[in-house]
């Protein structure tokens, strides 16, 4: 079997978002990265497995870390990790990691490639925009660089990540593929106020 998981084949992926080009605000930009490669692992052996394969994960849950390759490692709980290739240039790295996990003890592959939609939302008033649709305070003082919030956004579940460094006014947003299109349009609607 060449691929452990069908989702590793890039040309077989598609986004659930319709009208991806929609953008109503000049100060907040949105990009759909649902087809970018990603892989997830869960289990008591997941942290060590990543370490052995050269990925140092964040120390605490709900923290994210960017690798030199540009792959974002999300630690969603003590034993759950997602690796997101937001630039979509590391397909082979994600693919080989996925294959390496096959048969590992206490490491379980998560099918987050096709279970979730992924967006990049960026702009100076990003926290104010999210305050309209999310109950968690996402201002930089309480939601620092690399922080993750798993919460309700526009009444659907989402994972929000504040990127690090010069991308600190950029959020990575993941939501179930069934709600991705709705959330995309809700975010665009929320952004339209900021001109």
């Amino acid at each position: 079997m060449a691929f452990f998981n069908l989702s590793a084949i890039p040309n077989a992926r598609r986004s659930m978002v319709s009208e991806a080009a929609i953008n109503l605000s000049p100060v907040i930009t949105m990009g759909d990265i649902s087809v970018s490669a990603r892989v997830g692992f869960r289990g008591k052996g997941a942290l060590n497995f990543l370490k052995e394969n050269g990925f140092s994960a964040p120390d605490k849950p709900n923290q994210a870390k960017m690798t030199e390759l540009g792959i974002c490692i999300l630690r969603l709980s003590n034993t759950e990790f997602w690796l997101i290739d937001s630039s979509n240039t590391n397909q082979s790295v994600i693919e080989s990691l996925e294959l390496a996990s096959n048969g590992q003890d206490a490491v379980y592959r998560l099918y987050c490639q096709h279970s979730h939609g992924a967006f990049i939302v960026s702009g100076a008033p990003i926290a104010d925009m999210f305050a309209k649709i999310c109950a968690v305070d996402l201002n930089i003082d309480s939601f620092s660089e690399g922080a993750i919030a798993q919460t309700s956004v526009a009444r659907v579940n989402a994972i929000i990540v504040r990127m690090e460094g010069d991308k600190s006014s950029t959020f990575l947003v993941l939501s179930d593929s069934a709600t991705a299109d709705y959330l995309w349009h809700s975010l665009a609607d929320a952004a339209s106020e900021f001109v």
């Binding site: 849950p61 709900n62 709980s77 109950a135 968690v136 919030a149 798993q150 919460t151 309700s152 579940n157």
Partner: peptide, 17 residues
């Protein structure tokens, strides 16, 4: 809205639970 403290995520609206 009632608030519940999630051991993993911190305080969240009760509607998330």
């Amino acid at each position: 809205m009632k608030i519940m403290n999630c051991p993993l995520n911190g305080p969240r609206n009760i509607s998330e639970f």
